[in-house]
């Protein structure tokens, strides 16, 4: 997943926190709920017209959000190597009307369209998720999930993870810099694997010791496990207009799919 992030790009600090665009003023809770609704409707759809329409909806959300097009679309298209592989393999593994033959293996139209269908669904859902939810500040996501009645401990865990990802990443980069200074160059050999193993072990030991200090600091300040939320969310007319609009589009997708 590191290829998604550039070498100098921060992990979560620069993620989210969109200041302008039409999506940002909307209530985070409504954005989460509508992203889930849209995802369920899109995954349930199976006709190509409906899926193309779903992707069009995601793209117009992207336009409304004013996120950078190229970067966002690149992230949307990024998939695990093996999923891409599976999509490429589908025409050959699914029986049906022959499309063409490659080295004696027949490819079928059915398999091809199935692969297109999966690619459209996956991209439409992940794009809408990134636009609607990924534009929030990570901490806001935690607060909104708490207000949506997510288990409190799970939200705590999420907030801790968000808080410490960047801290630990900096520690990782420090350790890597120290290794580099000592002439470490990764290659396919035992020395490399041992060094990386020690690196991971050291990171985990330090993480646990850090967490002990955090707990002490929290106890010292009387932490009782209660979430103190600094943000108050309020639904406004804008939110209802947005929900009604996206809801109508989802209904339209269902009708398009059934037709």
């Amino acid at each position: 997943m590191a290829h998604v992030l550039g070498q100098h790009e921060n992990t979560l600090v620069k993620a989210g926190a969109q200041r302008h665009g039409a999506i940002n003023p909307l209530d985070p809770r409504m954005r989460i709920v509508m992203a889930v609704v849209f995802a369920v409707v899109t995954v349930a759809a199976s006709s190509l017209t409906a899926l193309c329409a779903a992707l069009a909806v995601s793209l117009s959300l992207l336009a409304a959000s004013r996120l950078p097009w190229r970067k966002t679309l690149k992230r949307m298209a990024m998939m695990d190597g093996f999923i891409l592989f599976m999509l490429v393999l589908l025409p050959f593994s699914m029986p049906g009307d022959p499309m063409f033959t490659l080295w004696g293996f027949p490819a079928s139209w059915q398999g091809f369209w199935k692969a297109v269908e999966i690619a459209l669904t996956a991209n439409a859902v992940i794009l809408s998720l990134m636009v609607l939810v990924g534009t929030m500040e990570p901490v806001t996501l935690g607060h909104a999930l708490h207000r949506l009645r997510c288990p409190e401990k799970l939200v705590h865990l999420l907030m801790f993870t968000i808080r410490y990802i960047e801290v630990l990443r900096e520690e990782y980069l420090r350790l890597r810099a120290a290794m580099k200074v000592r002439g470490f160059r990764p290659a396919t050999n035992w020395h490399t694997y041992r060094s990386f193993g020690y690196l991971v072990g050291m990171m985990l030991v330090r993480a646990i010791e850090r967490s002990e200090r955090i707990l002490d600091a929290m106890k010292c300040r009387g932490f009782s496990g209660r979430m103190l939320l600094l943000q108050d969310f309020a639904l406004t007319r804008k939110d209802f207009v947005f929900a009604a609009g996206l809801g109508a589009l989802c209904a339209g997708l269902i009708i398009l799919d059934l037709a």
Partner: peptide
């Protein structure tokens, strides 16, 4: 979540972040 009491949440959270960071490490093969 049931196995996590209050004292263990920071440990679990920091470890969760560590595993997120570890997934960024690329090992040559």
């Amino acid at each position: 979540l049931r196995s996590l009491d209050l004292d263990r949440i920071p440990t679990a959270g920091v470890l969760s972040a560590s595993f997120f960071v570890a997934s960024l490490i690329h090992v040559p093969i």
